[in-house]
Simulated assay, not measured.
Amino acid sequence: MSYPPPPGQDPNNPYAQQQPPQQPYGYPQQQPQQGGQPAYGYPQQQYGQPQYGQQPQGGVPGQPAYGYPQQPGTVQANNGYININNIGMAQLATMGQRFLARLIDGLIISTVLTVVMIAGLGSAIGLGNDLEECGTYATPGYSQCVQDAQEASMGALGAMMVMMLCLAVFLALYEWLMIAFKGATVGKMAMGLRVVKEADGQLPGAGGGFVRYIIPIAGAVACYIGALLVFLSPFFDNSGKLQGWHDRAAGTVVIKK
């Protein structure tokens, strides 16, 4: 009694052994495993390690990926650049540049103040000469001469007060309004610096310019020591933005144009 050949065997060749089915060409061959481990030469995938050609997932915690844009207000480490909206990456002004700009402004203000003082001194000298020309009590018309000199001195004093008022207005307009609407005084212009809002890169405006101006003025009441501390306060800024106390109050930073 004969039995039919098993499936896949040539009926005309009963002695041929059954061959396993072949996989299509180019299809990755399955490798036998021994003891649960892939065979030698089979690509292994370890936990937490990306395969060749794959991009690693995640990154260093707290560090942006390479080429990823930084958030506005972020200071790049050790290179003095800050990312500001509507401006992009801008270079922060160094304390040396800011000192030179303040020095130039100081020279301009001192020149104007010197002119005012010379005018007041000239009025005082003229008053002294008028009194000497009046002579003594025995000189005829002495009383009238002294009265005229006093009236002249009152006029000179009034003119001096007007000049001091003009000087105060000049200082306010120079520091406050130029920063507010130009972003720079003459000294900052000469050094290529500009004061902008940290949030959007715009000019400080009247409000921001006034806050930035009035804080050093308030500090100057205490023998100018407070104002000096305000101007030196950028050295104490740990954020790397070199913001003084007046900059923080006004929300501004000083950058290179």
Rank of each mutant, 00 (worst) to 15 (best):
N12F: 15
P14E: 06
Y15L: 08
Y15H: 07
Q17W: 06
Q18C: 01
Q19C: 01
P20C: 00
P21T: 03
P21Q: 05
P21V: 04
Y25G: 01
Q29H: 10
Q31P: 03
P32S: 08
P32L: 09
Q34D: 03
Q34N: 06
G35P: 02
P38K: 07
G41Y: 10
G41L: 08
P43C: 11
Q44N: 13
Q45H: 14
Q49L: 12
Q49D: 01
P50Y: 05
P50W: 04
Q54H: 05
Q54P: 03
Q55R: 11
Q55T: 10
G59V: 03
P61E: 07
A65L: 15
G67I: 05
G67R: 02
Y68N: 05
P69V: 10
Q71F: 11
A77R: 14
N78H: 10
N79W: 01
I82V: 15
I84T: 10
I87G: 00
M89C: 03
M89D: 10
L92W: 07
M95S: 10
Q97C: 01
F99P: 04
F99W: 14
L100S: 07
R102G: 15
D105V: 11
I108E: 01
V112A: 14
V115F: 15
M117E: 07
A119D: 06
G120P: 00
I125M: 13
T136H: 08
T136S: 15
Y142V: 04
S143N: 11
S143H: 05
Q144D: 13
Q144C: 01
C145G: 09
Q147A: 14
A149N: 06
Q150V: 13
A156C: 00
G158C: 03
M161C: 09
L165A: 15
V169Y: 07
L171V: 14
A172L: 14
L173T: 12
M178S: 13
F181T: 05
G183T: 09
A184K: 10
V186Q: 00
K188N: 02
K188R: 10
K188Y: 02
M189W: 05
L193A: 11
R194W: 04
K197T: 06
K197N: 14
Q202H: 12
G205M: 10
G205F: 09
G205I: 11
A206C: 11
G209W: 09
V211T: 12
R212E: 08
Y213K: 08
I215D: 03
I215E: 04
I217R: 06
A218Q: 02
G219H: 12
A222W: 14
I225H: 02
A227Y: 00
L229K: 01
V230F: 04
F231H: 05
F231L: 13
F231C: 02
L232H: 06
S233C: 11
D237Y: 08
G240M: 09
L242I: 00
G244T: 03
H246M: 02
G251K: 12
T252V: 00
